[in-house]
């Protein structure tokens, strides 16, 4: 049997697990009671703490102090770190709270080590160093996990936002409406161009109303995107009626020197709709006998 220099840590963790766990929970609950009152399920925290200590014991049992330990996101510690940071984040815990959790364990273990190995300072130094190193790395792992989860959420949100924001509506036979809301960047421009051209073909639209009421900035790059979509739409046989340019927007476009000479533009969607219907030979009329 090979002698494992770190086995005593594992032994200590196994023998004193209940005591360590209790001390750790006491310390952490005292801190969290103030900042996260009512959010912590004591049983769950206790279960997690137990699992964590068990995993640490297994690790020190199978690992000697020489080579630095590999801790990847796939290891059991990765799973624990994941649970710690992600599950807690959902409850409104900050990454600092998770770090606090690990630091508290570090303090408790340091106390136990000092008590148990005070006779053998050389061993004590090694154990403390290894334990510190290990917990620091787990701490980093929880932080990494937290950021990763956040980033995934942000990516998902921006994806669903871009899907939400470009509906194409069939207003009347052969009349389409594209209401644009928000910043127009290259990705979105490409997206609505593709969808609009497809819809024009499918519905044989003669007129397309593009409403830009919700577009905050109309600069030359936005204008360029519009000119492209307008040209392509006209090739497919659809006139473009642009609506919703604000008075300020109109002045800005003039200053920039952009002119949309080949389209019909109306200040409001209402007059744009009337114009579009006229282009397909329709008109909205009062029904006889009903008072307005």
């Amino acid at each position: 049997m090979t002698t494992n220099s770190l086995a005593p840590i594992a032994n200590l963790l196994q023998q004193h697990r209940v005591a360590i766990c209790d001390e750790w929970l006491n310390d952490i609950m005292r801190i969290w009671e103030h900042s996260h009152a009512g959010l912590v399920d004591k049983e769950e925290v206790s279960r997690q703490a137990n699992d964590f200590l068990k995993e640490l014991a297994v690790f020190f049992n199978s690992h000697s102090g020489e080579a630095p330990a590999e801790i990847s996101t796939n290891s059991p510690f990765g799973k624990i770190a994941c649970e710690l940071s992600i599950e807690r984040a959902k409850k409104g815990f900050k990454p600092a709270d998770t770090a606090q959790y690990i630091i508290t364990l570090k303090n408790v273990l340091t106390r136990h080590f000092l008590r148990t190995y005070s006779e053998t300072p050389v061993d004590l130094a090694l154990y403390l160093r290894v334990m510190n190193d290990m917990l620091d790395r787990i701490s980093l792992l929880t932080f990494e996990m937290y950021v990763e989860t956040r980033e995934r959420i942000i990516a998902q949100q921006s994806l669903s936002l871009s899907e939400l924001s470009t509906p194409i509506i069939l207003l009347w036979n052969n009349v389409l409406l594209l209401p644009l809301v928000g910043v127009i960047d290259t990705v979105r421009a490409r997206q609505f161009t593709e969808r609009l051209l497809e819809a024009i073909t499918r519905y044989e639209a003669n007129v397309t109303i593009i409403d830009v009421t919700g577009v905050p900035v109309f600069d030359t790059s936005v204008a360029r995107h519009f000119m492209k979509v307008i040209d392509a739409a006209q090739l497919l046989g659809s006139r473009i009626v642009m609506t919703g340019i604000s008075p300020e927007g109109a002045q800005t476009l003039t200053k920039l020197g952009i002119n949309f000479s080949n389209i019909i533009s109306r200040a409001t969607l209402r007059s744009g709709l009337a114009e579009a219907l006229l282009l397909v030979g329709r008109r909205i009329e009062l029904i006889g006998g009903v008072r307005p």
Partner: peptide, 29 residues
Amino acid sequence: AEASRQARQMAKMIGFATVRIHYIATAAS
């Protein structure tokens, strides 16, 4: 978009008229 937003905010804070805020935000963009 962020640059334009910041310019708009600053221009508003300084007290520019609506049209000029629009100009400044567009120039920033």
